[in-house]
C-alpha cells in the first residue's frame, strides 16, 4: 500500500541539517504545523495501514528563489528509510531540464518527476517543455503534476486546469501522467481526460473544505458518480494524501469510506502505483 503524494516538509532531522527548510515550509509551501521527528511520518503510515510513501519536492528556484526540497535532499531522506520513494523536481524553464531529470533518476535513484505549474508558473502544454516530458517517457518514470487549486501563496490555479494537460497525454501516450488533487475543482474535466487517455491518472489528495470524509465523498461521489471510479477509472486512480496538509490516516479513512469494492481499493492503494513505478504489471 502506497501513499503517492506526500511532502516531507516537517521532518525534524532534515530541518536540523538544512535549517532553511523550516522557512520554506512556513512561507513558501505555506504549512504552519510544528516539525516532527521522522518516526511520526512512519507512524502516520502505520496508522493508515500503508507501507510506503512517495516524497515530492518542488523546484521553485526561478519563482521563489529556493527549492521545496532539492533532489539531493529527497535522495538523502530516502536513504534514511526504505519506505520512501523519492521523486525529482526540476524547473522546466532550465535549458538542461531533461539532463537534470536524467541525473536525478540515474545517479540519485529517484523514480518520478514532480511538477507544480502553479507555484512554478508555467503552462504545462507549452511546447518548450516537451523535451522534459519526452525524457521522462524515455526514462520510464511518471510525471506527477499539481493540478487545480493550490493553497500556496501566489500560486494560481489557471496553470493547472485539466485542459492544459491534454496535449501531453495525447502526444506522449507512452508517458504516465498523474494529475494530483483530482484537479479540484475541475474533477469532471479531469475525469473526462482520464476516461479518454489511459496514460493519465488522478490522485485522491484533494481537501479544500469540510473534513476529509465529507470532502472526498463530495468530490468523488457527488461531483462525479462513484461508479466512474469503480467501473471506468479503477486503473487510473492513485491514493494520495498530500501529507502534511492532511494526515495520511484521515485521507486513507476517507477514501476507504467511499465504499469502493475491495479489488478497486487494492488498485487504488497499491497496484496502480506499483505499475507506474515499474514494479508490477497489472492485468
Amino acid at each position: 500500500m502506497i501513499d503517492f503524494h506526500t511532502h516531507p516538509l516537517l521532518v525534524e532531522e532534515m530541518i536540523a541539517r538544512y535549517p532553511d527548510l523550516a522557512r520554506i515550509a512556513r512561507d513558501v509551501f505555506y504549512i504552519r504545523n510544528r516539525a516532527q521527528p521522522l518516526e511520526t511520518f512512519l507512524l502516520e503510515l502505520d496508522v493508515a495501514g500503508l507501507e510506503r510513501a512517495v516524497l515530492l519536492p518542488i523546484d521553485t528556484t526561478r519563482t521563489r528563489g529556493c527549492q521545496i526540497y532539492s533532489n539531493e535532499q529527497i535522495a538523502e531522506l530516502c536513504r534514511m528509510c526504505d519506505r520512501f520513494i523519492g521523486f525529482a523536481s526540476v524547473d522546466p524553464y532550465r535549458p538542461d531540464a531533461p539532463e537534470v531529470l536524467a541525473r536525478a533518476v540515474g545517479d540519485l535513484g529517484l523514480r518520478g518527476l514532480k511538477l507544480a505549474p502553479g507555484i512554478q508558473e508555467f503552462y504545462p502544454d507549452d511546447r518548450r517543455f516537451f523535451p522534459l516530458y519526452e525524457k521522462a517517457a524515455e526514462l520510464g518514470v511518471p510525471i506527477l503534476f499539481h493540478a487545480g487549486m493550490t493553497w500556496e501563496p501566489g500560486a494560481q490555479a489557471k496553470y493547472g486546469h485539466p485542459s492544459r494537460f491534454e496535449d501531453i497525454a495525447h502526444d506522449l501516450p507512452q508517458l504516465n501522467v498523474v494529475l494530483a488533487h483530482l484537479a479540484w475543482p475541475w474533477v469532471l474535466e479531469a475525469a473526462a481526460l482520464a476516461a479518454k487517455y489511459p496514460n493519465l491518472c488522478l490522485d485522491t489528495s484533494a481537501l479544500y473544505f469540510d473534513n476529509p470524509r465529507d470532502f472526498v465523498r463530495f468530490a468523488m461521489a457527488e461531483q462525479v458518480p462513484l461508479t466512474l471510479w469503480e467501473r471506468s477509472l479503477r486503473k487510473q486512480l492513485l491514493f494520495g494524501s498530500n501529507y502534511p496538509r492532511v494526515e495520511v490516516k484521515n485521507m486513507a479513512w476517507a477514501v476507504r469510506a467511499l465504499g469502493l469494492s475491495d479489488d478497486c481499493q487494492r488498485l487504488v492503494f497499491a497496484d496502480n502505483a506499483r505499475r507506474l513505478l515499474g514494479e508490477e504489471q497489472v492485468a
Binding site: I31, L207, Y208, D210, N250
Partner: peptide, 13 residues
C-alpha cells in the same frame, strides 16, 4: 472547525 485555517496553511477538521 471543518474549514481552511490560514494560520496553519491547511484545514482544521
Amino acid at each position: 472547525h471543518n474549514r481552511y485555517l490560514d494560520i496553519d496553511g491547511r484545514l482544521g477538521f
